[in-house]
Each structure stands twice: as C-alpha cells, then as structure tokens.
Computed example of a mutant assay.
Amino acid sequence: MPRKQKRKLLEQPQPVINRWFAIKAIRISRPYVESTLRVYLRAKLTYQERKRSAALTSALDTTIKELKKLNASKFESLKVFFNLSLFFLIAEKDIQAVKVDALSHPDAWKRNLSLRIMLLVIHEWDMAKVAPANKLREAYEAASISQELREEMTEAFRKINKAHSKAKQLLAHARHATIAHRDADAMLQYETITNLDAMETMKVAASFYEGADLFIQALPKVMLEAGSIHSLLKQYSRHA
C-alpha cells in the first residue's frame, strides 16, 4: 500500500501554519529578547543594589569598630550579639557582591560562577556555629533580654535553620562537585556546572532570606536591650 505523502506546510490548515511560524519566530527571537531583558535587569539591579551595598558597608564598618572595642571589655553578652551580627553581615555582603552577576551578567559562565559562589555561601551559612543555643541562652540571661525578644530570636533561628537545612539538601551535590572540592570526574563536574538551575538556586536563596529577614528585625532590638545601663551593669558585675 503506497505511503501517504506529507502535505507541504502551505497546504496545511491556516491555524497550523500560524502556529508553525509563531514557534519559529519565538525560537529565532528568544536569544535577542533574553539578551535585551538581561541588559535592562542588570541596569535596574545595579541601581537598586548601590544603596544596599553602601548600607551594608556602613553596617560592617560600624560593627567591626564596636566589636574591637568590646573585645577589651567585660560585656560578654554584647560581644556575643555583635559577633553574631558581624557573621551575618559578612555573609550578606558576600551574596550581595555576586547577586547582580548571578542574575544578569552577559557571560553565561560568569553568571554560573556567581550562582555557585552564592550556593557555597548559603551552604556554609550556619548560624548555629557562631551562636550555639546554650551560649545564646547564657547571653540572654546575663544581659536581661526580655522573654518577648528571646522568642522573636528563637523564631528567626528556627526559620533560618529550616531554610539552611533545605538549602543543604538541594545544593550539597552542586557544592561538592563544582565548588568546594571539585569532583575528579571532569565530565560530571562540567555537566553539574552547566545544568545548574538558576531559578531553583534563586528560590533557595529567597527562602533563606525569609528567615534572615526576621533575624534582621530582631537582633538590633536585642543589641539595644543589651546596651542599656541596667544590662551593662549586670554584665559587668558578672565578670568584675
């Protein structure tokens, strides 16, 4: 039985022809559209991040200056809180430094490398290392931190730790194979790098920031209470 010949494109129904040309047009124009959007996004992000970068630098400088003064003092609780703040700010500054490139750099490899740096920072950003629960409880007690603020900090840590755990599960393989140790299987390393999902990485970063936002709101209030006259006198008397 003779095979039925395929009908030529222009012999197809009009909706089929229209759909074919639409798909073709999208495929041809997509790289140009993405490039244009990336240029726009880069300009917008660079402008938005300029103020944030300046604010982070100022906060870092102030925190470092105060922590250096505190290291020679007997205000142990304040040292704990300022050290926690500095730990957070350093990681925040690292992510802020590569965020624009991760989202909008014109070179694909540079975007990918910036994403991988973000993964490494998030993966290693373990607040429990710098402020174990028992050490934090002692600092609260010594500084007479209110129960309300303790609960705010506990909730912030709970969300940060949950997001951090999720990040470690999602990113452990990419981190191990492409950043921290470099897998000996070069092809596996290359495929892991090139298959890195930018959107999934940014989702992980966003979920981590949800907990971090609570921390940013709570910690300054804790530091203010710890810096009150009553609190400073109590901290001093414990180590006099």
Rank of each mutant, 00 (worst) to 15 (best):
I28M: 01
R50A: 09
R38Q: 14
W20C: 13
V33M: 06
Y40C: 07
E34N: 09
A22K: 07
R42Q: 12
N18V: 04
A54D: 04
T36N: 12
I28S: 00
E66V: 15
P13A: 03
K65C: 07
F21S: 12
T63W: 01
A54H: 01
T63H: 13
I28H: 00
I28Q: 02
I26D: 00
R27K: 13
P13S: 02
L56P: 12
I26F: 00
F21E: 15
L67K: 02
S29F: 06
A55S: 13
R27I: 12
P15W: 07
I64A: 09
K69P: 07
L60Y: 04
S29N: 05
L41V: 08
T36K: 03
Y47N: 12
A25S: 13
L41R: 06
V16P: 04
R42Y: 06
K65G: 08
A43Q: 12
Y47P: 05
K24H: 03
P13Y: 00
A22C: 09
Q48N: 02
I64S: 07
Y40L: 06
R30N: 01
Q12H: 01
K65D: 13
V16M: 06
Q12F: 00
Y47R: 15
K65Y: 10
K44L: 14
A59D: 13
N18M: 07
R42N: 08
D61H: 00
R38A: 09
P13D: 06
T63V: 08
I23R: 12
D61P: 01
I64Q: 14
S35K: 10
R19P: 05
L45V: 00
V33A: 05
L41E: 11
I26H: 00
A55N: 13
Y32W: 07
A55P: 05
Y47M: 14
F21N: 09
R42L: 03
A55T: 11
E66K: 14
K69H: 08
I28D: 01
S29R: 09
T36Y: 11
I17Y: 09
R38D: 11
R50M: 06
R50N: 05
R42H: 05
I26A: 03
P31Q: 06
T46E: 12
A55R: 13
K68T: 02
D61F: 01
A59H: 09
E34C: 11
R30L: 06
P13M: 02
T46K: 12
P13N: 02
E34S: 04
E66C: 12
A59I: 07
R38E: 13
R19W: 09
A43C: 10
T63M: 08
I64F: 07
P31W: 08
P31K: 05
I64C: 03
K51V: 03
R52N: 14
R50H: 07
L37M: 15
D61G: 01
L60C: 02
K24I: 00
T57M: 15
R30Y: 06
K51E: 10
Y40I: 12
P31F: 06
T46W: 11
E66F: 14
A54C: 03
L41Y: 02
Q12C: 02
V39H: 01
A54I: 04
Y40P: 00
T46A: 11
E49M: 00
R19Y: 10
K65S: 08
P15N: 10
E49C: 00
P13I: 02
V16S: 08
K51C: 07
R30A: 09
T62N: 15
V16A: 05
A22R: 06
